[in-house]
C-alpha cells in the first residue's frame, strides 16, 4: 500500500518506466492501481528509431508485473515523509 500511495502522489508528473523487455517509456503518470499497473499519457519510447512498433500510441496502460524500474522525479518527493511512512508500515506485520 505504501508504494501505491507514493505513486498516487506523483500523478501528473513525468516518469520513465523501464520494462523487463528492456523498453523504456517516458510519459506523464495519469493513474496507478493496487497492482501497480500504470497509466501513462504523452508517451515517448526511448530509441524511437529502433522501436517504431508503438509509433501510433500516445497513451498506454502498463502491467505492473512487467515493470523493472520506474525513474521518479526526485524534486517532487519528500524523503523524510517516505522514510517515516516506511518505518510505520514495517512496524505492522506484513
Amino acid at each position: 500500500m505504501l508504494i501505491f500511495s507514493v505513486f498516487k502522489t506523483l500523478t501528473d508528473h513525468t516518469v520513465t518506466v523501464e520494462l523487463k523487455n528492456d523498453l523504456c517509456i517516458t510519459g506523464v503518470l495519469k493513474s496507478v492501481d493496487q497492482y501497480l499497473n500504470i497509466r501513462l499519457d504523452a508517451i515517448k519510447v526511448e530509441n524511437a528509431e529502433q522501436h517504431p512498433h508503438m509509433m501510433a500510441v500516445k497513451n498506454c496502460f502498463i502491467r505492473g508485473s512487467v515493470i523493472r524500474y520506474v525513474q521518479l522525479p526526485a524534486s517532487a518527493m519528500d524523503i523524510q515523509l517516505l522514510e517515516d511512512a516506511t518505518r510505520r508500515e514495517s512496524g505492522k506485520k506484513i
Binding site: 520506474v70 525513474q71 521518479l72
Partner: peptide, 11 residues
C-alpha cells in the same frame, strides 16, 4: 546513474 528509482521487488 539515476537520481531516484523505484525497483520492483520481484527482481
Amino acid at each position: 546513474q539515476i537520481e531516484m528509482l523505484y525497483v520492483r521487488g520481484d527482481g
